Computed example of a mutant assay.
Amino acid sequence: MHPHPAFRWEDRPAIRDLVRDIGFGALFAATPDGPCVAHVPVVWLDDDTLAFHVSRGNRIAKHLDGATALFSLQGPDAYVSPDWYGLGPDEVSTWNYVAVELEGNVSRMDDAGLLEHLDALAHEQERRLAPKPEWKRDKVDPAKIARMLTAITGYRLQVRAWRGTLKLGQNKPDAARLAAADALEAQGRRAMAALMQGAK
């Protein structure tokens, strides 16, 4: 994560919300086969436990149970031109971004836990599609679900280290940061612009 203390983000409820809102990231683990990464959808089981699943054929799968892993998620990001600050010729370009790293111990789920995870994941995403009626697993032939469960493995990540970065130009004077945010908004980068406008 970014070493500058102005960009350190330690608001766990806000980090949880970002992970919930995006719901997808990269899970890294060191293995005897070398470093591995899997791109996974996630859902919170409780305040400190993420659930995810991977294909059993994924080379990371056989190494996860009992491993220490790192889940990384990226939020909005944008290039920032030094011209936008209005501070003169000695400014340089940068990239503003939001990122989260969650480190912890991984444990494998049984089939019942995997089904609960899949149901929770579908519910979390389906509720965002309202007024569309929510898709539920009971619409699918149980035999097909049983076959699907032989192809994936579910895991829990018990988070023990939280690292967040909010790099939003907090190291610049307010007027310069807001000018850059206005320029980003004009470029259509509204998510980053809104974050910069609300930065402290």
Rank of each mutant, 00 (worst) to 15 (best):
D17F: 08
R147E: 12
F24C: 02
Y85K: 08
Q170K: 09
A191G: 10
Y79Q: 12
L166A: 14
H2L: 13
L195P: 03
R128H: 09
D174R: 14
L118R: 06
S93E: 10
V42N: 03
K172T: 05
M109D: 10
R16W: 02
I15D: 03
D119G: 14
P133R: 04
A78K: 00
T165D: 04
D46G: 08
V106A: 01
G104E: 00
A26P: 02
G88Q: 06
L115P: 03
T94L: 04
M196L: 02
E101N: 08
A51R: 14
K62G: 09
R16C: 11
R190F: 07
E101L: 10
A179V: 06
K167F: 03
A181V: 07
K62W: 05
A29T: 03
P82Q: 07
W162N: 04
R16Y: 10
D33I: 09
R156C: 11
D48T: 14
D141N: 14
G75I: 07
G86H: 12
R108A: 12
T94E: 01
I60H: 01
D138L: 02
E116W: 07
A112V: 12
A179G: 08
G75K: 01
A51K: 01
V42H: 00
T68V: 14
T49Q: 08
K167D: 02
P142I: 02
Y155W: 04
E116C: 08
I15M: 15
A199E: 05
V140D: 14
L121Q: 09
E126I: 01
K200S: 11
R59A: 15
L114Q: 05
V100A: 00
Y97A: 04
A6H: 06
P41V: 00
K136Q: 13
T165G: 04
W84G: 00
E134V: 11
P82D: 06
H39N: 15
T150P: 07
D48H: 15
L70S: 07
W44L: 08
M192N: 05
A120D: 10
G86Y: 11
A161W: 09
D77M: 12
L73C: 11
M1A: 11
G188Y: 03
V54M: 05
V37M: 13
A176D: 06
C36E: 14
